[in-house]
Design a protein around this nucleic acid. Structure first.
Lengths: 225, 225
DNA sequence: ACAATAGTGTCTCTTAGACAATATCGA
DNA sequence: TCGATATTGTCTAAGAGACACTATTGT
């Protein structure tokens, strides 16, 4: 039983040009050397405190991203998914603002639009699909998408992000009501998004209490589901 | 990396005396020999097609249960959870009608009320808690609890099961409206639950299409959440 | 002033829950 | 007939979406 290959894989999602993108890396070694794949790697029992830790380390080492929103997705396993043998991959998904991805320091990180993915090795396609399904589902009733925003953002911007993820238009009044009920944002005093030929929008940021790990407790953006 | 211990654990839930119970087994071997613990065991790379398969096999071998509702819960891992070393446990949860548990053939299966659990080894307490949270959460918006029923049941019985799981009373009219909308039950013609000193209730059963794997698609019992 | 988008007030429609009336059994 | 619970009809209240009006900017 100890011949099982234990790995983690991370589906790192971000927004670019108003579309969801996944971070992929060209694999250094066989199998699938040179092919774009999810950032992942072996669990290091000597140093990883758990699989989340392993996923965090992997992400840091391969993309330089420090403390993203990171949540366990599911575990994929079996004899066929990795040609080296029976393997387990504990998959995580991360949401980060694209500004946090330092592409100068890590030019090897490829950001691919999720609807243009093709030819992923292993069962990575299945893992990405599971992550997308999870994020879409969870976004419909939680504040999850705020993790794709930068420090400050306007409500129209945030609504656009929800619409991008959910793939459908949202009623403006309802959206604002829900966000208001969630009570997780605070206006940045006096600051406005400016420069456009129309009324500027109020800037908001996450309340201090929610800056980090917002994941566990949120509920209730949209009960449409 | 190959010294990692790879296991599965199953949280088998059932209803007994109107209360949720977990199936536990006295461990045969060290560590924690003789202590009640979740049914679980090593993944057998030679025979298991994936972790679900391993969980199914474990459940069959240890409790005799053949094809329960079984879904992946989460993966628990780390250096401290098992005294033998760095370990991974892919946890599943199962829901079965208590009638399916053949306690004559498997007298070693202990069914413990979930609110009376104590002294579980490893991190099994944490795993059980995660399963309960998942089941309660999912029950509030899906038909999940029907898996705890036998072949036929009445609507008042089913409502009672929901109330047991959710821990609160449900509006009768709303409950029936929702169940009706889900459109997953069919009346068993002419059959009534009988014998009580009051109007008998109509018996229902799952529509054929939903007999097995109902898990993946269901939605929308209760949007209260 | 005009175009364009932000922000808000209000109406309607859908849906969940409360209440209550009717139905059907055993005693 | 009475007590008990099943089943169904209807009213009310809460919430989501549609619509439209006001606000504020650059041109």
């Amino acid at each position: 039983m100890s011949e099982i290959i234990c790995t983690v894989d991370v589906v790192l999602l971000t927004l670019l040009d108003n579309r969801l993108h996944v971070a992929l890396l060209k694999r250094d070694h066989a199998p699938f050397a040179g092919v774009l794949a999810l950032p992942g790697g072996y669990i290091h029992a000597e140093q990883d405190a758990d699989t989340r830790d392993a996923a965090m380390r992997t992400l840091r080492e391969k993309t330089g991203i420090a403390s993203p929103y990171l949540e366990q997705l599911a575990t994929f396993a079996g004899p066929g998914r990795d040609p080296r043998g029976w393997s387990i991959s504990v998959a995580y998904y991360a949401l980060v603002p694209s500004a946090l991805i330092d592409r100068a320091a890590h030019p090897e990180v490829a950001l691919i639009a999720v609807d243009e993915l093709k030819g992923l090795p292993f069962d990575h396609r299945q893992i990405v699909d599971a992550a997308l399904q999870r994020v879409r589902n969870k976004s419909s009733y939680s504040s999850l998408p705020v993790h794709l925003c930068g420090d400050t953002f306007t409500l129209p911007q945030l609504q656009g992000i929800y619409e991008t993820i959910l793939g459908e238009a949202i009623n403006k009044v309802s959206f604002r009501r829900k966000i208001d009920e969630l009570d997780i944002l605070e206006a940045v005093a006096g600051q406005m998004e400016t420069g456009k030929a129309h009324r500027p929008a109020q800037l908001y940021r996450l309340k201090k209490h929610f800056r980090q790990h917002l994941a566990l407790t949120d509920r209730g953006l949209n009960s449409t589901a």
